[in-house]
């Protein structure tokens, strides 16, 4: 019981260093500090989805009403296409909860200069 609680707490915290490795999967389309096929990721937490100036989002993302938080990212990263139908992030998702947690921990640290 206690072991399970510790595991859950660890997942909730995430390991940013391990998350950097997970982020390498995103580098086909994203960068931290400039827009590419996908929008930049610095300053993501707390940002309203579809709001990076100058980046051309899908209508689906713009009207999603999502504000990126640990909770919303956890849901989106698990299954982007079904979480925001019509998103241009046509990616099956990050299936491992620990990978998602680590990735979110990494993204949380990325501030825009």
């Amino acid at each position: 019981m206690l072991e399970g609680a510790v595991l859950l707490a660890a997942l909730a915290l995430g390991d940013a260093r391990a998350g950097e490795e997970v982020y390498s999967r995103c580098l086909g389309c994203h960068a931290l500090d400039y827009d590419r096929t996908g929008p930049k990721h610095c300053g993501l937490l707390g940002r309203r989805a579809g709001s990076v100036p100058g980046y051309e989002y899908s209508p689906a993302m713009k009207r999603s009403g999502i504000v990126w938080s640990e909770k919303t990212l956890e849901r989106f990263l698990a299954d982007p296409v079904n979480t925001v139908p019509g998103t241009t992030m046509t990616y099956a998702g990050v299936p491992d909860p620990a990978d998602r947690s680590n990735l979110i921990a990494y993204l949380k640290k990325q501030r825009c200069e």
């Binding site: 999967r25 995103c26 580098l27 046509t90 990616y91 099956a92």
Partner: peptide, 17 residues
């Protein structure tokens, strides 16, 4: 190399869709 690795992951994520 970072772009190519990312591209591999992107296609891997697209294949099942």
């Amino acid at each position: 190399a970072s772009l190519e690795k990312g591209a591999v992951s992107a296609y891997l994520g697209a294949v099942p869709l």
